[in-house]
Write a protein that binds this DNA or RNA. Structure first.
Lengths: 243, 243
DNA sequence: TGAATACTATTGTTATAACAAGTTGGTTTT
DNA sequence: AAAACCAACTTGTTATAACAATAGTATTCA
């Protein structure tokens, strides 16, 4: 172990290799800190740093008192191609049950950016909602949305219980188009609590603005989802219409 | 500081607040480790852990011997909506110069998955390419691609110098459609070196498979880009064609 | 005046040590 | 048999300490 690379990186790379080679399969526990200390003849802090490197790469998750386990790799894909298919329908197509858990639902004065996105006059209120999205019962996303006040007020009960878009359409509010931006970001402490991921875990941030059939923006927001559980697909065509 | 939250988290949240409030603007240096030790009356390891939390959240970057600096926040957006616009054209539209730096270009026996994606008989070779994508001279993505052997062989010179798709079309190979999947993942040591990001940094993984106008898959691969520099946008329409 | 050296400041790595907190399995008590 | 207790195991936090490496500035020397 005389090398220009730090010990913690040498150890974490060796462990990573073992994981990718299947020595520690998905869900399996890797050796304890004390076992690794003995094996590699280093201090505990070096072992912990090596494990932290693996946690940061999403290869393992550590549970206090239990041990460090190889994370399962399983993702679902949501198609963003036109024609529009709402999230829960796409999930159902894949045999995945999607549900929500409402966290916050309140009338607020929106940030300026939201006001502009929803094309609202100054000092208009909107309904702010924070909800957890669960797939097969496990939290995979936190959704923060802003809905026109008149819709939020009349549909509050259902908005707290169902996914937004299909629910709006059930009530005759048709969604004509959704503008989206997809980015990758880091989990902050609040989000990492909700989604049970380590601080800094990669998230997909799916920002959206939905327009009704009068070309009026009615909802905007962003869904922060676990990068290891959800991904998006698009088909890009040379021309606008399909073959 | 008597609380149920660990000290390192309390401190990093305070620092994060200062950053978001503008006390330390983009590019500015935050107080040194010793200054923070004095301010918060904690050990150096606690301060370092707090700083590591900020690094993990992408808010700061640490440079040995120099200090810890607030990371600039600047992104470009690539539109995945149809009709197709290639990456470099979209960037040019935004006044951003995109260039590539070839790292590897070789004929290989492809992994089984690639073989299937390109619909190749067993034991066919493909051209594997690894290249760095730079925006305004700064590396933002590593691209790993597999191209049909006959194309790779005849167009090797240009493939090493230019972006793939416009170059193919210059040579009469039309791209009819691209199937994509977007996911979020973590930077491993190799990628973190190429892109100059910390281990575990969130990346967008943009996987693609491009078809020519005979509906034949000709290139597949993935671009791993910095989550803080590049994002994607899509417009989803209720119906297939635009209004 | 420019180059080389020394010093200071700052982050990076690794060690030992101690205590805290959570989990699990075995043993004892009811 | 079920509940409670306890010990062992395991990860989490924080401290002190020492050395390494890098960067920037000041001082010295040719």
């Amino acid at each position: 172990m005389t090398s220009s690379q730090p010990l913690h990186l040498i150890i974490s790379e060796k462990l990573r290799y073992r994981i990718t080679q299947g020595d520690y399969p998905s869900g399996a526990q890797i050796p304890s800190e004390y076992q690794l200390m003995a094996e590699f003849e280093v201090s505990r802090i070096t072992v912990r740093r090596a494990i932290a490197n693996l946690v940061q790469q999403g290869l393992v998750m550590a549970q206090q008192g239990r041990g460090v386990f190889v994370t399962p790799q399983q993702k679902v894909t949501y198609s963003l191609s036109s024609p529009m298919v709402f999230f829960e329908a796409d999930m159902a197509r894949q045999g995945v049950v999607s549900t929500i858990q409402n966290l916050v639902f309140e009338s607020i004065l929106p940030p300026v950016q939201v006001q502009n996105l929803l094309e609202l006059p100054k000092r208009s209120q909107v309904y702010f909602q924070k909800k957890l999205l669960l797939l097969n019962g496990a939290p995979v996303a936190v959704d923060l949305s802003y809905t026109l006040h008149r819709l939020g007020k009349t549909l509050a009960r259902d908005l707290k219980r169902q996914m937004t878009f299909p629910m709006l359409e059930q009530h005759g509010v048709m969604i004509d188009r959704i503008e989206t931006v997809i980015e990758s970001t880091h989990a902050n402490p609040e989000i990492s609590d909700y989604l049970d991921v380590p601080l800094g875990h990669p998230l997909i941030c799916y920002s959206y603005r939905a327009f009704n059939d009068q070309n009026q923006p009615i909802v905007c927001g962003e869904a922060l989802s676990r990068g290891d559980r959800l991904c998006y697909s698009v088909v890009i065509r040379r021309d606008q219409s399909p073959d």
